[in-house]
């Protein structure tokens, strides 16, 4: 009887590069308040958000992903032909099929395996987990993981609960084979019973059946999401710390999904993190970019010198599904 030839050695993996892309156009709260009969002060109090970036009408999810990916490749010192797989996390690539990842790979002249992940705001952290596993078992030596969203295409500017929340952008990371472990165990899960908390209003088929319906924007039940995000997700973040054998005082940064500053502040409290620990608050000028928020925030903290390469960061994504994923990673 023949046996299958499979690698029997596990490798280590770490993030070796990070890249970000923020569209040029900045939209301050003052431009969106009239449609929701609100004010800059109300939005800041509710969310901490002062402004967001908006992609140009002809700027696609793949265009934004390409910018962020080039930055991550350069940071890692990895060339496009060394990338063995491309994973794109997004919920705003406006095609049922094909996925965004193959088109992104082709922009680099790559024919590497390429596929999208649909896990909303948790998508990037899912991608890091999948890439980590691929590198660990030897399926790939370098994996490009991108979180990218053009959320403002799926935002109802008249919905008081969500119009001010979202923004556009892309963040990318390279996960590479490494001599030492740089990605801790992922703590992740889902709760489909609460799928209604954050969702596209109507399905494409409902819209096809009634063309008079409004564009099916993504909306949410804010207070319920807040409760879930803070009190359930802080526990998951703690589990990720425990799984990695890391104590809060060992961390160099906490990089939660940039959903809302109020959620971030309450999570810091619920986790009992040290008062002087750098916490990502990229949301103030970037808003909630769903799958892109964690890598965008990480890139900013590194670029602005708030954290140093080599430190440990606790990252967690959580959102529609409901879905979540958390891991401790070594900063690139």
């Amino acid at each position: 009887m023949s046996t299958l030839g499979v690698p029997d050695v596990l490798h280590h993996a770490r993030i070796t590069g990070i890249g970000a892309y923020r569209p040029e156009r900045v939209v301050p709260n003052s431009e969106i308040v009239d449609a929701i009969d609100s004010s800059d002060e109300w939005i800041r109090e509710r969310s901490g958000i002062a402004s967001r970036h908006k992609a140009a009408p002809d700027e696609s999810v793949v265009d934004m992903a390409e910018h962020a990916s080039r930055g991550a490749l350069e940071y890692a010192g990895v060339s496009a032909d060394q990338v063995d797989a491309v994973i794109v996390a997004t919920v705003s690539h406006p095609y049922q099929t094909p996925a965004a990842a193959p088109e992104l790979a082709a922009r680099f002249g790559s024919r590497a395996p390429a596929f999208d992940i649909s896990a909303a705001c948790a998508g990037y952290c899912h991608g890091i987990s999948v890439a980590n596993d691929m590198v660990r078992v030897g399926t790939a030596e370098h994996v490009l993981v991108v979180g990218v969203e053009k959320m403002l295409d799926f935002t109802d500017p008249t919905d008081r609960g969500s119009a001010f929340i979202f923004g556009d952008g892309a963040g990318a990371a390279i996960v590479s084979r490494s001599e030492t472990a740089g990605i801790g165990p992922t703590v992740w899960g889902s709760d489909g019973d609460q799928k209604h908390l954050i969702a596209q209003r109507d399905s494409w088929m409902t819209l096809a059946g009634d063309r008079a319906l409004p564009w099916p924007a993504i909306v949410m039940e804010g207070p319920s999401v807040f409760r879930w995000a803070v009190w359930s997700m802080a526990k998951e973040a703690q589990r990720a710390l425990d799984a990695a054998g890391v104590k809060p005082e060992d961390l160099a940064a906490f990089i939660p999904h940039q959903a809302n500053v109020r959620i971030i502040n309450q999570m810091v409290k619920a986790l009992g993190l040290p008062k002087d620990l750098p916490v990502a608050r990229d949301i103030v000028t970037t808003a909630n970019t769903s799958a892109a928020s964690v890598p965008l925030a990480m890139e900013r903290m590194l670029r602005e010198g708030e954290v140093e390469p080599g430190g440990l960061a606790l990252q967690i994504g959580f959102g529609a599904g409901l879905t979540w994923a958390a891991q401790v990673v070594t900063l690139p």
Binding site: R46, G222, P223, R227, V230, R262
Partner: peptide
């Protein structure tokens, strides 16, 4: 008390 603070109070 806004809706998010109300959730904090409830929890």
């Amino acid at each position: 008390v806004d809706s998010l603070s109300m959730m904090t109070i409830a929890v």
